[in-house]
Design a protein around this nucleic acid. Structure first.
Lengths: 121, 121
DNA sequence: AGTTAAACGTACTTTTTGGTAGGTACCATA
DNA sequence: TATGGTACCTACCAAAAAGTACGTTTAACT
C-alpha cells in the first residue's frame, strides 16, 4: 500500500476538514448569511439576493444544505409553487462564525483600499 | 449583455466571498491552525503534522498563504536548507474563527456518532 | 563514489466544481 | 390560444483544484 485508504467516513478525523466540507462551496456561506436568524426566504427571494448565482447552483446548493441539516425547507403545494427556506438550529450556530469572517474581510478590504490609495499618489 | 462582467477585482464586492477565497482550499485552515499563536514550524514539521498532504500541495498552499500575507516565511541558507513558517498578525486574527468551526464540528461529529449508536441498537 | 537530507519544482492527469442552455408542471390571466 | 410566473430538472461542457510521479540542489556523512 502507498497511502492511507480513506474508505468509509475516514475523512472525519480532522474537525477543521469536516467543518469546511460542510460550509465550503462557492455560495453556501452567503446563503446561510442571508437566512440569518429568524429570516424566512422564498426561492425567488434568495435568487434575487444573490444575483450572481444561477438557478441550477441555487437549487443544488440549497439541496446540499438541506441534506446537511443546515437549512430547513418547507414547501406549499400551490400554483405557482412556493417554497420557504430558513435556518435550522445547527445552521444558526454558524452565523457568528460567518460574521467573524465577514468583519475580518471588511477590515482587510479597507486595508487593501488604503494601500492602493497610498501607492497611487 | 446577459450577466455582470466581472473583470478586474469586481469579485471583492461581497466580503463573505472575499474571506472564503482567502482561507478556502483544502488545507489552508488546517495549516493556519497548526501555526497557532507564537508557533514556528519548519516545512518538514508541517509535513508531518498533516500526513495526508503531498509536498506539492504543501509548497503550493504555503506560497499562497505567504502571498496572501497570512503566514510569514523565513529561510536560512544552509545545507540542507531550512525554512521556518509562522503566522502574521493578519493570520492570527483568523485563529478564533477557525476555532469556532472546530468546536462546532466537534459537537456535530459527536451528534453523528450518537445517532449512529442509536440507529444500530 | 554513493547515499542521505530538506525543501522544494515541474509536467501531466484526474477529480471536483461550477456554468450553459435547454425543458417541465401547473394554473391564471390577457 | 398564447403568455407569464414559480420552482425547479437534466444533459452536456469548461474551468479550477488537487493528485501522481519524478527531478533538483548542495554538502556532509559512510
Amino acid at each position: 500500500m502507498k497511502k492511507k485508504d480513506n474508505n468509509s467516513d475516514d475523512f472525519q478525523v480532522c474537525p477543521i476538514d469536516y467543518g469546511f466540507k460542510r460550509i465550503g462551496g462557492k455560495y453556501k456561506a452567503r446563503i446561510l448569511w442571508y437566512l440569518k436568524k429568524d429570516t424566512v426566504l422564498r426561492y425567488g427571494e434568495l435568487s434575487r439576493a444573490l444575483p450572481d448565482i444561477t438557478t441550477k447552483m441555487l437549487t443544488q446548493t440549497l439541496k446540499e444544505l438541506e441534506n446537511d441539516k443546515l437549512v430547513h425547507r418547507e414547501m406549499f403545494y400551490q400554483v405557482p409553487p412556493r417554497v420557504d427556506y430558513s435556518l435550522t438550529c445547527t445552521g444558526e450556530e454558524l452565523i457568528p462564525f460567518i460574521d467573524h469572517v465577514r468583519e475580518w474581510s471588511l477590515r482587510e478590504m479597507e486595508k487593501e483600499k488604503d494601500l492602493l490609495a497610498v501607492g497611487s499618489r
